[in-house]
Each structure stands twice: as C-alpha cells, then as structure tokens.
Simulated assay, not measured.
Amino acid sequence: MMLRKNILTALLMAIGFILRQLIPGLIGGMKGDIMLSVIFVSLLINREFKNALLTGLLGGLITAMTTTFPGGQLPNIIDKLITCMVIYYMIKVLSRFEGNPVITGVIGFVGTVISGSIFLGAALMITGLPAPFTTLFSVVVLPTAVVNIFMTLVIYGTVKTAIKVSGIKLDTPVKA
C-alpha cells in the first residue's frame, strides 16, 4: 500500500475521531456513530483489502477508546472489522456505479445498519444491553443510518475535491 493512501486513511480516522467527540451519548450510553461515514469514505477512496483491514482496526480502536456505552470496547472493534469487510466487498460488487451519489448514500445507510446490528448483537452477547435491542436499534441505529447517508456524501465529496485540487496522485482513480 502506498504511503500516501495510508496517510489519507489516518487523516480520515483523525477527522472521524473529532466528529465522534461532538456526538453525545443517547439511550444507555449508546451514541450515533458518525465515524462510520469517515470509514466508508476511506474504503471508497482506497479500495485495497489492506486498507479495509487497517480502516476497520483503526476505526474499531478509536471508537472503543471513545465509547460511552458500558462495556462497548470489544463490540466496537468486532463491529468495525466485520463492517469494513462487508462494505469492502459491497464496494467491489458496486464498482461499476463508482461516483454515483445514490450508491454512495446506500453504502452509508446499509453500512451503518450492518455496523449497528453487529455492535448491538456483540454487546448483547458480551455485556448485555441497557435497553431492549429493538429500542436501541430504532432510536439510535436507524436515525444514525439516515444521518450517515448525508454525512458520507458530504465527506466523500469534500475529500474528492480536496484530492483533485491538491493534485495528489493515487493509484486508484477518484472520480470527481
């Protein structure tokens, strides 16, 4: 993997960390995970499997360190690693629609639903949930998935423009 791509992924994770700090904990300490939008953009920009692993691991560690959910550290790492692998393959399958904002929004929504489901399932098995699964899913995961549609589109558009304006050359083309 090129150093530039790794640096871009690290910068995106830092932005995700900052965005994550702005979101307050909701029911049972669970917060909407805006970091997922940044993770999806990283996977859209750098479509290598190694990057999906790196992004999943970094995203999982950052969200584990910043979670307000009691016992949410391990579920965060599990959910980010699995979500990154699923979205990596989803992006591969949908690569012929590259640059389509509808597909980018779908990736943001579906990825957030997958991540939230895995997180809640893992937390249920490991530590238990402070509220019923369906309540947490409908009050936290679904609204976050809707917000992440727009966050993913905005962040992706901003990153693509920044790459184009700065003249950074990446191996994989980023359509503007």
Rank of each mutant, 00 (worst) to 15 (best):
P70L: 01
T134S: 11
P173C: 09
F49E: 14
L58V: 11
T152K: 00
R47W: 04
A176I: 14
N100D: 15
L12G: 12
F133S: 06
V174F: 02
I18Y: 02
L94Y: 01
I7K: 01
F97W: 03
L58C: 08
G111P: 08
L61F: 04
L153Q: 07
G16L: 08
M85E: 07
M151T: 14
Q73C: 12
K160S: 08
L81R: 07
A145E: 15
G167C: 11
V113D: 12
F137N: 12
K160R: 05
T83Y: 00
G29W: 06
Y88E: 15
M151D: 09
A176E: 13
G71T: 07
P70M: 00
I78A: 06
M151H: 05
L3N: 05
K169M: 15
A64Q: 08
R96S: 14
V41K: 02
L124W: 12
L11V: 14
G128Y: 03
L124D: 15
F69L: 14
T112S: 08
S117A: 11
I114H: 03
E98S: 09
E48G: 03
A123S: 12
I15D: 14
T172N: 03
L142N: 08
V154H: 02
L142C: 09
T68R: 03
L36N: 07
P132N: 02
F49C: 10
T66H: 04
M151K: 02
V140W: 03
I107L: 05
K50F: 07
I87F: 00
F40A: 07
G56H: 10
L36M: 06
V106T: 04
F97A: 13
T152F: 01
V141K: 02
Y89T: 15
S138G: 11
F150H: 07
M2G: 12
K50V: 11
G111R: 03
G116I: 05
Q21K: 09
V86A: 06
S138K: 02
I155N: 06
F40E: 09
K31Q: 13
T63F: 00
V147L: 06
L170W: 07
V159L: 09
F97Q: 09
G108Y: 04
I34K: 00
V159F: 04
Y156T: 13
M30G: 06
Y88F: 14
I87A: 03
A123Y: 00
K160A: 07
K160Q: 05
G28D: 14
